[in-house]
Amino acid sequence: MAASAHGSVWGPLRLGIPGLCCRRPPLGLYARMRRLPGPEVSGRSVAAASGPGAWGTDHYCLELLRKRDYEGYLCSLLLPAESRSSVFALRAFNVELAQVKDSVSEKTIGLMRMQFWKKTVEDIYCDNPPHQPVAIELWKAVKRHNLTKRWLMKIVDEREKNLDDKAYRNIKELENYAENTQSSLLYLTLEILGIKDLHADHAASHIGKAQGIVTCLRATPYHGSRRKVFLPMDICMLHGVSQEDFLRRNQDKNVRDVIYDIASQAHLHLKHARSFHKTVPVKAFPAFLQTVSLEDFLKKIQRVDFDIFHPSLQQKNTLLPLYLYIQSWRKTY
């Protein structure tokens, strides 16, 4: 089996927390979720979201995140109150960019949308954001926290390059993509939290790379249903696996070995980020709550012996909000 052949990389499970039942964490995340308004986002309300009498641009960002990046939404709820709305805006910006690729039928249209967001970032730093909910909220975040323009532009530029429907040539190319998107998002989150620390940035770099790799793995069944495969070609070739094997949902050992190798790289990034947690300011830990969902996925895929098409991998963990709150309460990542 794939797991038994390579099992030495995987460390002990961390979500089991001995003695936790003896201490009762304060009510927090679930209460916040219940208090949030929840009407559906419609095209009509989106168009009017920044106008008078609408929910408001902040509510639009929150709803977009809740629907399109639920794990990011849950993590954002546990940030300090003064930072929450800015991170909602930042993550909503990322969602807007991420959904361009799947929402257009022609690359030219995707490039036009990316050009809109490039100009939007430029206009935000000229205090002239367009009348668009996410743009307005992002402008507020930039003004409030003096966010670095370079990180925002890196996210747009990398998403634009990724409009080509090509597999990553190697794991390094996937890591570079993750660094310029997910890690950049974390650098900006640290700025919102008021953290300027080399060790925190180092952790953000590795956690962002782990996030990018896990996202690529999780999306494999969806991409396969659209006749697309984006997994690193070098690892596929190493194990003699073709793109057609993934399109046919082949579950042979060599296919699972490909998934094992890729998942192991995410695991190593996560492990390395945690190896120097004592040197990272505690104030930075809330920015890294996504490690909970990353670890949850890596454990699940290990349990199914790296069968990327196993139905259990597509099921939401209903206990994730609780695990996130516990992680926040324990002040760790």
Rank of each mutant, 00 (worst) to 15 (best):
P129T: 08
T120F: 09
T332C: 13
M114R: 04
F306R: 01
L298W: 05
N146L: 07
I259Y: 00
Q302V: 06
A135M: 04
S242Y: 03
G53K: 14
M153H: 12
H272Y: 10
N317M: 10
L62Y: 14
Q315L: 09
A204Q: 02
L111P: 15
F306G: 04
W329L: 11
D102P: 09
D305P: 01
L268C: 08
S242C: 07
A49S: 15
D261V: 05
G212H: 03
K196D: 05
K67F: 06
F276P: 04
C126F: 14
V304W: 04
A98L: 06
S205W: 02
D69W: 08
I301G: 00
Y260D: 05
A204H: 01
V87S: 14
G72W: 13
F297T: 07
K154V: 05
E295F: 07
H269S: 01
A48Y: 14
L111I: 12
K101Q: 15
I124Q: 00
N250D: 09
F306Q: 00
N94V: 04
H223N: 15
L174S: 01
F306T: 00
L294M: 15
V156C: 08
V142N: 05
T332N: 13
R218V: 05
Q290S: 09
Q115W: 07
P321L: 05
K283D: 15
V142Q: 05
D197N: 13
P129N: 03
L90M: 06
P321Q: 03
N176Q: 15
M237D: 04
P52I: 14
P133F: 06
E122A: 15
V104T: 15
G212N: 02
L238I: 14
V46A: 10
W55E: 13
T215W: 04
P321Y: 03
D123G: 08
A266I: 03
K316P: 09
E173G: 07
Y177I: 03
T148C: 12
Y73C: 04
L324Y: 11
A219I: 03
K101Y: 14
L320Y: 07
K140V: 00
R227H: 12
I207H: 02
W329R: 13
L64Y: 15
A47Q: 09
I308Q: 02
R218G: 04
D123H: 08
K172E: 08
E158R: 03
P311F: 06
K299Y: 10
L77P: 02
F88M: 14
A210S: 11
P232A: 02
K67V: 08
D257Q: 04
S105A: 15
S76D: 02
E191I: 01
N250P: 09
V304Q: 05
V87Q: 08
D102L: 06
S86M: 05
F297M: 06
A54D: 08
V121I: 15
I207M: 06
N250H: 15
L198M: 09
S45Y: 12
H59V: 08
K253C: 10
Q327H: 07
L62G: 08
I192E: 00
L65R: 02
G53N: 11
C236Q: 09
K253S: 14
S105W: 14
Q315D: 12
E179A: 04
V214K: 03
C61S: 09
T57N: 15
P52H: 13
D102A: 09
N146V: 07
L186D: 02
D201I: 04
Y325R: 05
I301L: 14
Q115A: 13
I326P: 00
C61V: 13
Q302L: 06
K140T: 04
V282E: 08
R249V: 10
S103H: 13
K209T: 04
I155N: 05
R303L: 11
H272S: 10
C236E: 03
L77I: 08
V280K: 00
K331P: 09
Q314R: 10
S293L: 11
E295N: 12
D252W: 09
L289A: 07
H277F: 06
D165S: 15
K101R: 10
Y333G: 01
A200W: 00
L65I: 13
Y60V: 10
D123W: 05
Q132F: 14
K172F: 09
E295L: 08
T181W: 02
P80H: 06
K278D: 13
L77D: 02
R248W: 06
W139S: 08
L147D: 01
I207L: 13
A48M: 15
K101E: 08
C236A: 07
I192F: 02
V282F: 08
L62I: 13
L188G: 05
T220E: 04
L238P: 03
Q315V: 00
H277I: 07
G240V: 02
A89P: 01
N146D: 13
L193G: 02
V214A: 09
S45F: 12
D127R: 06
V280L: 10
M233A: 08
V134N: 03
H131I: 15
L190A: 01
V241M: 06
M153L: 13
G194M: 03
G224S: 13
T189R: 03
K149M: 11
N176E: 13
L190V: 02
A263C: 10
L90H: 00
E137V: 02
I136R: 14
H199W: 10
P311W: 08
F309G: 05
L65K: 02
E158C: 11
A284I: 02
D102F: 07
Y323R: 12
L231S: 00
D157C: 14
Q290P: 09
L247A: 10
S312C: 12
I195G: 03
T318G: 13
S293P: 12
Y60C: 07
Q327R: 14
P286I: 09
E96M: 11
A81Q: 15
E175P: 02
K119N: 10
R169L: 10
Y177S: 09
A135L: 02
A203G: 02
A89D: 02
A92T: 07
L64I: 14
R226F: 12
Q290Y: 10
Y60H: 08
W55V: 13
E71A: 08
L294Q: 11
R66I: 05
L186R: 03
Q99K: 07
H277E: 09
R303C: 09
M112Y: 15
Q265G: 07
L163H: 07
W55H: 15
Q327G: 06
N317W: 15
R169P: 14
M112D: 08
A178E: 02
S275K: 10
F285Q: 12
L313I: 11
Y60F: 06
D261A: 09
P129G: 02
P286A: 12
R169F: 12
G51M: 09
F276M: 12
D257M: 09
S264Y: 06
H145P: 00
F246H: 01
E106D: 13
R66N: 07
Q302M: 07
A210T: 08
L193F: 08
I109K: 12
H223L: 12
H131V: 13
L322N: 03
V229H: 10
R227Y: 13
I326D: 02
I308E: 03
F297V: 05
G194T: 02
K143L: 05
V282N: 09
K209G: 00
K149A: 06
L163M: 08
D257R: 08
V282P: 12
L324M: 08
Q182T: 13
T291G: 01
N170S: 13
A204R: 01
L231N: 01
E295P: 00
N250Y: 11
D252T: 15
M237I: 09
D252C: 14
R68W: 08
R169V: 11
N180P: 02
F288H: 00
V156I: 09
L152Q: 01
Y70C: 06
S264D: 06
H223D: 15
V121H: 03
P221K: 13
P52L: 08
Y333M: 12
S50T: 15
I262P: 00
K107R: 10
L138I: 09
S184I: 14
A89H: 00
S312F: 09
Q251W: 13
A263I: 03
A266E: 00
S45A: 08
L111T: 11
E82S: 14
E137N: 11
T279S: 13
F285A: 15
D197M: 04
I124F: 04
R249K: 09
E137F: 02
P286Y: 09
R144M: 11
E122M: 15
L77K: 03
Y333A: 01
A178D: 00
G56A: 15
K172G: 12
